[in-house]
C-alpha cells in the first residue's frame, strides 16, 4: 500500500457520460456539489459506490466516475444493503427520488434505516414524479394539481424527515440543491456518521414543478421561512433573528415565537444528539406543506452501531480458528458435524 495522500479533484469524479437532465433542473447543482465534495472524503474512487433506483434523480451514478449501479425503481436501499453488508470496506451511497424512496421503495427505506446499515441515502425531493412526466408524488402538497390529479390531489403527503425518524434513523438531515455550502456541510456530517444517513435534498424540477422551493431560495423570502439548524446554537431565524423556536405551552411540541417576546433561556438550543427521536420529530413538524418555518441542517445524529459491524462481530466470533483451515477442511468439518454413521 502506498501512503501518498490522495489528491483528487472534482474533475476526477466526472464520468465520460453526457449529462441528460432538463435545463434548469436542480439535479445539476446537486451533481456538481457532490463532485466537488467527494475529494474531501479522501477515499479512493474505487472504494466508492453509488446505487440508485429509477427516476430523473436516479440517473446520477452514470455521471460519477466511481463504481455505480442504476438499479430498479425503489429497490436501491435493499441492493445497497447487500453490498454494504458484504463489503464493509466500501463507501456506499444511495441516490433516490421522492417517489422512488417514499412510494415504491418505502419499505426498503424504512428497513435500511432501522437496521442502521452504513449507507448514505440522498433523497432528491422535487415533490413530483419527474421521469414519468409529472404525476403527484407522496410528497406533493394536498390538493396539488398534476397530470394525474387534474382537480387536485386528495392524498396527504409524507413528511420525509418524520418518516425517517419514525424508522429509527440515526442520522437525519435536510438541505437544498442550490446551497452548495450547506449541502457540503450536511454531506460532511453524513459521511462521518457510522450507520445510515438520510438526507432530504429539496430539488427543483424545472419542468413539472418549477419553483417549488423558490420561497426557500428567494432572498426576499428565504430568511423568514428557512430555519437553519446549528448544533449547540439557539434556534432563531428571520432577517435579524426576530423569530425563534420554543416549547409549545400545551403538549410536547415546538412552536415559533417572536424572539423579542420570550426570555433567551426559553429559546431551544439545537442538539442533534438528543437520544430520543421526539425532539427531532417535533422539529420536523415545524414546517408545513407551504414550507413555512422549514428547518434545514442536521435534525438528528445519534451514535448507534452500524449494522455491518454487528454482523461482522457475529461472523468473527463464529470463525475462531478458521484462518488456519483450508476451505476443504472446513467443508469436511461441516459435513461430519452431528449424526453420521459409517458403512464398511
Amino acid at each position: 500500500m502506498t501512503e501518498v495522500p490522495l489528491k483528487l479533484t472534482a474533475k476526477d469524479f466526472r464520468s465520460d457520460q453526457e449529462v441528460r437532465w432538463c435545463p434548469g433542473c436542480g439535479d445539476f447543482a446537486i451533481l456538481s456539489a457532490i463532485q466537488s465534495f467527494m475529494p474531501e472524503l479522501g477515499i479512493p474512487r474505487e472504494q466508492i459506490t453509488f446505487v440508485s433506483g429509477i427516476g430523473c434523480s436516479s440517473r446520477f451514478p452514470y455521471y460519477l466516475n466511481t463504481y455505480g449501479m442504476h438499479s430498479i425503481h425503489g429497490r436501491a436501499p435493499a441492493i445497497a444493503s447487500g453490498l454494504a453488508i458484504s463489503r464493509p470496506d466500501l463507501s456506499v451511497w444511495v441516490v433516490s427520488g421522492d417517489g422512488d424512496a417514499l412510494s415504491i421503495g418505502g419499505n426498503h427505506l424504512i428497513h435500511a434505516l432501522r437496521r442502521n446499515v452504513n449507507i448514505k441515502i440522498l433523497m432528491f425531493n422535487n415533490r413530483i414524479y419527474g421521469l414519468t412526466k409529472g404525476q403527484c408524488s407522496p410528497t406533493s402538497e394536498f390538493g396539488k394539481v398534476t397530470k394525474s390529479t387534474p382537480v387536485g390531489s386528495r392524498d396527504t403527503p409524507f413528511n420525509p424527515i418524520a418518516v425517517a425518524l419514525g424508522a429509527e434513523a440515526s442520522f437525519v438531515a435536510r438541505t437544498i440543491d442550490s446551497d452548495r455550502k450547506h449541502l457540503h456541510s450536511v454531506l460532511r456530517a453524513a459521511a462521518a456518521h457510522q450507520g445510515s444517513a438520510f438526507i432530504e435534498i429539496y430539488q427543483n424540477c424545472a419542468i413539472f414543478n418549477d419553483g417549488a422551493f423558490d420561497v426557500l431560495k428567494d432572498p426576499a423570502s428565504r430568511d423568514s421561512v428557512l430555519v437553519r439548524l446549528e448544533h449547540g446554537k439557539p434556534i432563531t431565524f428571520g432577517a435579524s433573528g426576530e423569530k425563534c423556536v420554543v416549547r409549545e405551552p400545551r403538549g410536547f411540541g415546538l412552536e415559533v415565537a417572536d424572539t423579542a417576546s420570550v426570555p433567551r433561556s426559553e429559546i431551544i438550543v439545537h442538539d442533534e444528539t438528543v437520544p430520543g427521536p421526539a425532539y427531532a420529530f417535533t422539529l420536523s413538524r415545524l414546517s408545513d406543506q407551504d414550507l413555512s418555518n422549514t428547518p434545514v441542517g442536521v435534525f438528528r445524529r445519534v451514535a448507534r452501531p452500524a449494522y455491518e459491524s454487528l454482523v461482522q462481530e457475529q461472523n468473527a466470533a463464529a470463525r475462531t480458528g478458521v484462518a488456519d483451515a483450508t476451505p476443504d477442511d472446513l467443508l469436511a468439518e461441516l459435513l461430519h458435524t452431528g449424526n453420521t454413521w459409517t458403512i464398511r
Binding site: S71, G82, L83
Partner: peptide, 27 residues
Amino acid sequence: KRYGVTTFQAEDEIAAVGSALGASYGG
C-alpha cells in the same frame, strides 16, 4: 457463519433478492 456465510433476513422477497444481487455485485 463459521463457513463463510452471511444471512440477511430481508423485509420482503424483493429486498431479499436485491440484497443478494448487491452482494454479488460486491464479489
